[in-house]
Amino acid sequence: MMEILSWFITALAPAYIVYTLTSLGNLLIERSGILNIAIDGFFVLSSAMSYTYAILISQYLGPGELPTFLSIALTVLSIALMYSIFTSLITVLPVSQGAIGLSFMFAGYGLGAIVGNIGRLVFSIHRVRVDYIGMTIESSVLAYIFIAIVVTFIHVLLYRLKLGVFIRAVGEDPRVASQVGVNVTYIRFLSGLLGGSLIGLGGALFTLWRIGGWSQGQGLNHGWFAYAISIAGWRFPLLVAPISAFFSSLYVLSPHLQSIGLPVEVSTIVPYITSITIMALVSAIPKRSRVFTDPKALGREFFREERA
C-alpha cells in the first residue's frame, strides 16, 4: 500500500506541476480580459523549444543539471516575450481576439514542429545526452512546495496587491479602466509576461520531466487540458490547485485503465471527455460571488473611442 502511494506521489508530481502552472498562467492572462485561445500552440511550442535548447546547450556544456536549468530558463523567457507581444497586440489593435488567438495557435503548432525537429536533427548527428529531471521523491516534494508557493503568490498578487486590482480591472472593463488613467496595454503586457512565463515553464517541464524527450506533435491538447482546469477552477487560484490535482491524477492513471481491460482508444479519450464534462458542469453552476464570475471583457475587442 505504501509502495503504491509513494509511486503515485512521484508519478503525480510532474503532471501536477505542469498542469497547475499552465492553468495558473492561463488564469492570469484571462483575468486580464484576453481570451487565451492560443494556449495550446504556445504549450506545444514551449515543449519543443525546451527540448531543442536542452540539446543545443548540452552539446556545448555536456550533460548535467545546469544545461537543463538553462534551457528551462530560456524557454520561460522566450515564451513570456512572445506572450507579451501577443497580449499587447490584441490590446493595441481593436482586433478579434479569437482570430488572432487561433492564428497564434496554428503558428505555434507549426513552429513547434520545426524547432523540435532541429533538436532532433542535432541529436541524431551528435547523439547528445540530456539530463532529464528524475522521478524521485526529492524532486516530487520540491515540486509540491513550489506549486504551493506559486499558487499563494498568484492569489496574493491578484487579490491583495494593486497590480492584481489593475489586472482584474482591465479584464472587467478596459474602457473604464483606461478612462481613469490605467494603461491597459501595459497591464495586459505584464499579465502576458507573467502568465506566459508560467505556461512556458509548464511546457518545458512537460518535456524535460514528465515525458523526458520529444517527438513531433508532443504536447498537443495538453494546453487545452490546462485550459479546462483553469475554467473548472473558475479562474480562481485557490480552486485551480485542487482541481488540477484531480485532473492530473486522472491523466496519470488513465493509461493504466488498459490493464483493467479497456481498449487503448477508449482510455486515451478519458481525459478529453472529462475535460469537456467538467467545463460544462462548472459553467452551468451559477456563481454566487464576484470573484468567480468570468471577466466581463473576456474575448471582447478593445477600442477606447467606442461611443457608448
Binding site: V165, R168, A169, E172, D173, V176, A177, G181, R290, K296
Partner: peptide
Amino acid sequence: PSLIENLTVTENILLV
C-alpha cells in the same frame, strides 16, 4: 460613473 462594477469601492479608488 467610470467605475468598475465588479470591484469594490477601495479597489476602484486604488486604480487612480
